[in-house]
Simulated scan of single mutants.
Amino acid sequence: MGKTITMETRKINSITVVYDPGEQETVDIISDTVERSLLRIHESWGLGNPHDCWIYVMTSWQEFFFQSAPWLWRILLAITFPFWYSRARRTWPYSAAWTLRVGGRVAIGIKPPRLLEVSDKSIGVLMFIEEKDVKIKLSHLTCHELTHACSVHLKLPAWLNEGIAAVTVDRLLEKQTIRSDSLELLRKFKTKEKPPTYQKLSRLDAEAIAYYGVLGYWFVKYLEDVRPGFLKQLFSSPPVSRIFDKVIAAELDIELDSLWSKVPGMIFAYFEMTEPGTGAE
C-alpha cells in the first residue's frame, strides 16, 4: 500500500497554496512571487485579486483536477471524465502550469522543477528565451497563471488571455521572455484566421500552438505601444462592451472581417521598424 501524504497549505494574501511537504523550496519561490505579481497585474490591467484562488504544486494532472475542485464538482468531474481526460493527457507533457475555473474557485497548478526539466519543450523553444534559473522559471509561471486567475471573470479569448499574461511576466521580471525571432512566425505562418479557442488550440501541432501564443503576446505589446491604457480601460468596461475582437478592430480602424488577416503583418512590420533585429535575418 502506498503511503498517504498529508498536504500542507500556506496563505499568501488571498491565495492558498497547497503542496506536498517535500515541495517546500518550490512553495517558497511561489510565495515570494505572488504579492509582486498581483501588484503588477493590477498596475497593468486594473484587475483585482482573484476570489477563492488556490495554487497547487502539481505533480499529476489527475490529482490536480480532483484535489483542486470543491466536493460537488469532483462528482461532476468524475461523471464527465471521458469528455475531458484526453485533452488533459494530451497537453500534460508540454504544459508547465494550468489555470482552471471550477465553479466559483480558481485553481492554478504549477509543476515543480524536477517535472519542468522533463517536460516536452518542442513548443516552448519556439516561443521563449531560454531561462536556466529555476527561481526565475517558477516566478514566470506563477505570474503568468495569476494573470489568468485575475482575469478569469472576463472570459477572454485565448490569444488575449495568453498575451496579457506573457506581457505581465515581462514587466515583473523586467526583461523580455518571448524570443524576438518569434516575430518571424507571424510573417511566415500561412493561416491568417481568427485564433482558436483553447480546446481547438490543444489539437494543433507545435508550430501552430507557438504561432498563436506569440501572436497574442506581440499583439498585446503592439496595443500597449500604440494605444496605451486601452486594454486596461476595456477590461473595466461593462460586459456588453467587451466583445473583444469587435472593440479592438474598431479601435484600430480595421474591418472586423479583416482583423486577423491584417494583424500579423501589421505587427511584424511595426516591430521590425521599431526594434531593428527582431525580424527576419
Rank of each mutant, 00 (worst) to 15 (best):
S44R: 08
S180P: 08
L116I: 10
L173Q: 06
H51P: 06
G104F: 14
E281F: 07
L252S: 01
F268H: 10
E63W: 07
F230C: 02
L223H: 09
P228V: 08
L126H: 06
V27Y: 10
L256I: 12
P50N: 11
Y222A: 03
G104V: 05
Y19V: 02
L173P: 04
H153S: 15
T4F: 13
Y217M: 08
T80S: 15
S202Y: 15
L215S: 04
L72I: 01
S258T: 07
A158C: 07
S237P: 04
V106G: 03
F271Q: 03
V125Y: 10
A208N: 04
K155I: 01
L234P: 02
R203Y: 09
I243M: 08
Y212D: 03
F189S: 02
K121P: 01
G213P: 00
G46C: 06
P228N: 11
D205P: 02
K11E: 15
S68F: 06
M266T: 12
R227I: 03
E130G: 02
I12V: 15
R74Y: 10
K3V: 01
L100V: 02
L252C: 00
I136C: 03
R227K: 15
A206S: 14
H153R: 13
M273K: 14
A269L: 13
H153W: 14
R114W: 14
R242Q: 12
D133Q: 14
L172S: 00
F271W: 10
M266H: 08
Y19W: 06
P93I: 08
M266V: 07
F66V: 00
P93F: 11
R36S: 13
E25P: 00
D52I: 11
L38Y: 06
S68M: 10
F271G: 01
I243D: 12
T4A: 12
S237D: 13
I55T: 03
L172R: 06
G2R: 14
K246R: 13
G163M: 09
I108P: 05
N49C: 11
R105P: 00
Y94M: 04
H153V: 05
L231C: 08
E275T: 04
V118E: 11
L72T: 02
D253V: 00
I178A: 06
S68R: 05
A165D: 09
P112N: 04
I123Y: 03
Q176C: 05
V18M: 12
K262W: 00
A149R: 05
A158Y: 08
F230V: 04
D257W: 01
V220W: 04
I267D: 03
A78E: 11
F189K: 09
D28Y: 11
I5P: 03
D205Q: 13
R74V: 04
Q24W: 10
R40P: 00
Y198N: 08
P157Q: 11
Y211H: 07
A280Q: 12
L215Q: 06
M1T: 09
A78S: 14
I129M: 12
K121N: 07
Y222Q: 04
R171W: 10
T142M: 13
Y56E: 02
M127F: 06
G2K: 14
G2P: 12
C150F: 03
D253W: 00
P195D: 09
I267T: 01
I136L: 15
W73V: 00
P82H: 13
G265K: 04
T9D: 10
A206H: 12
S151C: 11
V106A: 09
I30M: 08
I55D: 01
I209W: 07
A249P: 02
H144K: 06
L72Y: 10
W84K: 02
V167M: 09
L256Q: 10
